[in-house]
Design a protein around this nucleic acid. Structure first.
Length: 898
DNA sequence: GCGGACTGCTTACCT
DNA sequence: ACAGGTAAGCAGTCCGCG
């Protein structure tokens, strides 16, 4: 922990300390901003300098974001005008104010001293709302306040005060962020275009093409009128073109005297030594600091070849000014981890040079760095989103690093470095920094701006500002969408505790200890090789169930006596027969749009390419929403958490797959496997497949489709473990160790070789040959192991830390053991999400990090065991015994060891 | 005091 | 901070065994 004595004296910390304190309650960023500018001062303060022109009249501009302006005390909307490619701000001029609801009457409320005298309290008025939990109209009191913090977010907010003073009081809708509330009330849709006339926001006249609406009607012929109308409204949002956004990416490098440590963005005590920017409109710049503090290594200019010439600066302050000027100019700024590092660092660094926060285009929140005038897209946050990673990008990238994502999606790598950035020659530094900015930009431009389009379409579906789309997860997207629809219908948004109290209990027993209810069925596979395997699955099983069974928090165990006969199979839960459930309607419609509309349209060659491309983005977005739509009802933290909804969904799912398997068997089709929503049929006659599909639609009300056909598929006795070979020779591998990312490279390679052999098998006769080849592969691998011919890198096992090393209290898993052997400085930098690479050794701990291990101490026997388990999963299916392959070679050890 | 049976923890996968 | 189900490896504990 060497303190750098030469460090400048400008290390004042007062602002940073404030920032590090945990926010008192809400993470609402509007509120955080407010805390920095206390409400009392708001009136006297001059309005914030305009960072973008205020829009009074705009013919056409996309609503991209929303926020709360603490100084003006108003909601502010951010628009993007595609012609000029500039941002415009619109400040609320309708007098809209923050509010919540309570069951106390206005009179009762005014009797409470602390409410009446609350500085933020404005008034209370009676309102009528529909209460979905009781299926009745209720009278509530709308409590109106001057600013969002008066409603919630401080210890004396009305949200806290009212129930404290009157324990019988209930408060609704007090934890909705103000600008979200504003969007709901105005029924605005972020991502859609508007026009502004004399300060008034009006929707752009547009409707989906007549013929599209016609054919949608056809596709949804069997759906109720309400669903058809709802789907039409969605189409109006989803079909509208997405603009090209003018944007700049930015990446910074910071010089340090301790190369192992990442500089602290909150302190910003080291100089910014390079900044690169790369834009959609041709800006390519890399700024490099030439005059560096003495404690940094002396470096030459060097002669590295560059795409653009660096601009050298002797004054860091001037360099930063230049950067802020560029940022101010762009409506969209793209970074990779800018929230936590680049933009945050720039702000704090700028403060050291005497810039005031107000004059900077960036506004820091606790976990975010937002543009005052536009949208900051932090790609790290976006790609970190599990739903995006898994469903939008099919797990193509595994690590959330610029390197891995760029490699997986763009096929390009980072510039590899041999030494720390501070020691690079100036031109090498410029090249490195520029390359990162370029890659960052390209991550938003590949696939015809796929990522920008995804963010836009998610904004339209979720109704969240684009800033929040990037930073929040799927459960918040769904929550916001649900709230929006509640407000539109004048429904009271139920309190989580009321839902739970009314319908909290589950009745089924989970297979896994500690889970709340029973989930899906997995069928015991029939081991062996099966030819001509048809995989049938239910299209969006859980969303289909939610739709068909009218599942929603208010319709499940509804208050009506007549509905109690309408039971969900194998549960005591009943479902409403009188009213359509709101989540059933929303999820059902999104499902229909994806399955029956966008999936086909995305592949329809008769449509123009750009339209097809948009449709693909739409169907990907819908996939993301649908895949999470069931799970959120079983997630405690989801505000509409309703266990019987999740439990009923899973129960119907089990019912559907079990009935389908029984039906297949009655048709004498062998069922060799099934998992959750799929059944694997061995060599089924086409007419019987048709019959099964028809039966499913008529009997279960579910769409069953042939998802894929394998030339052959091989199963061991293990569930969720198989491979299938398609007619074209491509291979589907599921769950096999050879594909897992923690498997050592040498095994993955051998495994791939085996798959290559297997992909060439066309008939049962071909297996003879394949078996021999595979035996050879295993034999070779075994011999190389024994002779220690693999490198440490090939033998390394990579495991991701689920938490920081210190937090492993109950046990010490092997990767943690290995990590603990690392040098102190290295260990300190490790945290949740970091990967440990280690090898198995014969010395006392049994493991060692690759960095410090040597080839002689490798535990060869352990690796032979790995070889065995990896290949066993496939050899089992092919009827080969592992020990048979190794034959004599292994026999000796056999007696010696076991 | 030791080893096998067992449970629990952890990671990575499937749908 | 969507859910539950499965596989695998290992850590840690319990129990029986003269």
């Amino acid at each position: 922990m060497a303190k750098s004595l030469t460090l400048d004296a400008f290390l004042e910390k007062k602002e940073e300390v404030k920032e590090q304190l945990p926010s008192p309650s809400e993470k609402a960023r509007a509120e955080e901003v407010l805390e920095e500018a206390p409400a009392e001062e708001a009136e006297e303060q001059p309005s914030a300098a305009p960072y973008a022109p205020e829009a009074q009249n705009l013919e056409f501009a996309y609503l991209v974001s929303a926020s709360y302006d603490g100084k003006r005390g108003k909601a502010v909307l951010k628009f993007y005008e595609p012609k000029s490619q500039k941002s415009y701000l619109w400040f609320d001029n309708t007098g809209h104010r923050p509010y919540c609801y309570t069951n106390l009457s206005p009179e009762d409320l005014e009797c409470i001293e602390k409410v009446r005298t609350h500085p933020g309290y404005v008034s209370a008025e009676v309102a009528e709302k529909y209460d979905p939990l009781t299926d009745s109209t209720v009278q509530v009191t709308k409590v109106i306040a001057t600013d969002p913090l008066a409603i919630g977010g401080k210890p004396n907010s009305l949200r806290e005060v009212i129930p404290k003073e009157r324990p019988d009081a209930k408060v609704w809708e007090a934890d909705i962020k103000y600008y979200d509330c504003f969007i709901y009330d105005r029924q605005l849709v972020p991502g859609m275009p508007y026009r502004i006339e004399n300060g008034k926001i009006k929707p752009v006249d547009w409707s989906a093409p007549e013929d599209a609406l016609k054919s949608l009607e056809k596709v949804l012929f069997d759906e109720p009128a309400e669903s058809q109308e709802f789907a039409k409204k969605w189409i109006e949002l989803l079909e509208y073109p997405v603009p090209t956004y003018r944007r700049v990416s930015i990446d910074i490098e910071v010089g340090t005297d301790i190369p192992t440590r990442v500089p602290d963005a909150r302190e910003a005590k080291y100089p910014v030594i390079a900044v690169a920017m790369y834009s959609s409109d041709g800006l390519r710049r890399v700024l490099v600091l030439r005059s560096r503090p003495e404690y940094l290594p002396k470096v030459e200019e060097g002669d590295a070849e560059l795409e653009v010439e660096p601009e050298y600066f002797d004054s860091e302050k001037e360099m930063l000014s230049e950067v802020f000027e560029v940022l101010r100019d762009y409506p969209f700024v793209i970074t990779f981890n800018g929230d936590d590092f680049d933009l945050r660092y720039l702000v704090h660094r700028a403060e050291h040079f005497g810039f005031s926060r107000d004059e900077l285009p960036i506004e820091l929140g606790r976990d975010s760095a937002l543009l005052r005038h536009g949208v900051h897209v932090d790609l790290y946050k976006f790609f970190f989103n599990r739903s995006i990673q898994v469903y939008a990008f099919g797990q193509r990238y595994r690590d959330i690093t610029l390197d891995d994502i760029a490699y997986a999606l763009l096929g390009v790598g980072k510039v590899s470095l041999e030494k720390p950035v501070s020691e690079l020659s100036l031109r090498e530094l410029a090249r490195y920094c520029y390359n990162d900015a370029k890659i960052t930009y390209m991550l938003t431009s590949f696939g015809d701006d796929l990522v920008m389009k995804l963010i836009t379409i998610v904004a339209r579906v979720s109704k969240l500002p684009m800033d929040d789309v990037v930073r929040q997860g799927i459960s918040n997207w769904i929550r916001n969408l649900m709230y929006y629809e509640h407000r539109q219908r004048n429904w009271l948004i139920p309190r989580s505790e009321d839902i739970l109290q009314l319908k909290g209990a589950t009745v089924t027993e989970a297979v896994i200890k500690g889970k709340k209810y029973r989930g899906a069925v997995v069928v015991e596979p029939v081991p062996g090789v099966h030819f001509n395997v048809h995989v049938l699955d239910f299209a969006s099983l859980y969303p289909s169930i939610i739709k068909r069974w009218n599942l929603s928090y208010e319709t499940t165990r509804c208050p009506h006596e007549v509905c109690k006969k309408n039971l969900v199979p194998d549960t005591p839960h009943w479902v409403c027969t009188l009213r359509r459930g709101i989540s059933s309607l929303i999820i059902g419609s999104l499902r229909d749009l994806r399955v029956r509309w966008y999936k086909h349209r995305a592949k329809d060659p008769s449509l123009p390419e750009d339209l097809r491309n948009l449709y693909n983005v739409v169907q990907l977005t819908l996939k993301v929403f649908l895949n999470a739509s069931y799970g959120v009802f079983g997630a405690e933290h989801f505000p509409l958490y309703c266990p019987p909804v999740a439990e009923s969904t899973a129960a119907v799912g089990r019912y559907a797959i079990i009935r389908t398997i029984e039906k297949a068997k009655s048709l004498t089709i062998p069922v060799i496997y099934g998992d959750t929503d799929s059944v694997f049929l061995e060599n089924p006659p086409p007419e019987k497949v048709e019959e099964l599909i028809k039966w499913s639609y008529e009997e279960l009300g579910m769409e069953l489709d042939v998802d894929k056909v394998y030339r052959y598929a091989a199963f061991s006795t293990r569930k969720k473990n198989y491979f299938g070979v398609f007619p074209d020779g491509s291979v589907d591998i599921k769950g096999l160790a050879g594909k897992k990312r923690n498997t050592p490279e040498f095994l993955k390679k051998a495994f791939e070789e085996m798959i290559e052999i297997l992909s060439q098998v066309n008939s049962p006769e071909d297996f003879e040959f394949a078996r021999e080849k595979i035996k050879q592969i295993v034999q070779t691998c075994y011999n190389k192991l024994k002779r220690r011919e693999y490198s440490l890198d090939e033998l390394a096992i990579t495991i991701v830390l689920g938490k920081s090393v210190k937090e492993y209290k109950k046990t010490t898993p092997q990767h943690v053991k290995a990590a603990l052997l690392l040098p102190e400085e290295k260990l300190e930098t490790l945290g949740k999400g970091d990967t440990i690479r280690f090898v198995k050794v014969t010395t006392k701990d049994g493991v060692k990090p690759v960095e410090i291990a040597s080839i002689e101490e490798i535990d060869v026997d352990k690796y032979v065991e790995y070889l065995e388990t990896t290949f066993e999963q496939v050899l089992d299916a092919l009827g080969i015994d592992f020990s048979e392959i190794l034959g004599y070679t292994r026999l000796g050890e056999f007696f010696g060891k076991k």
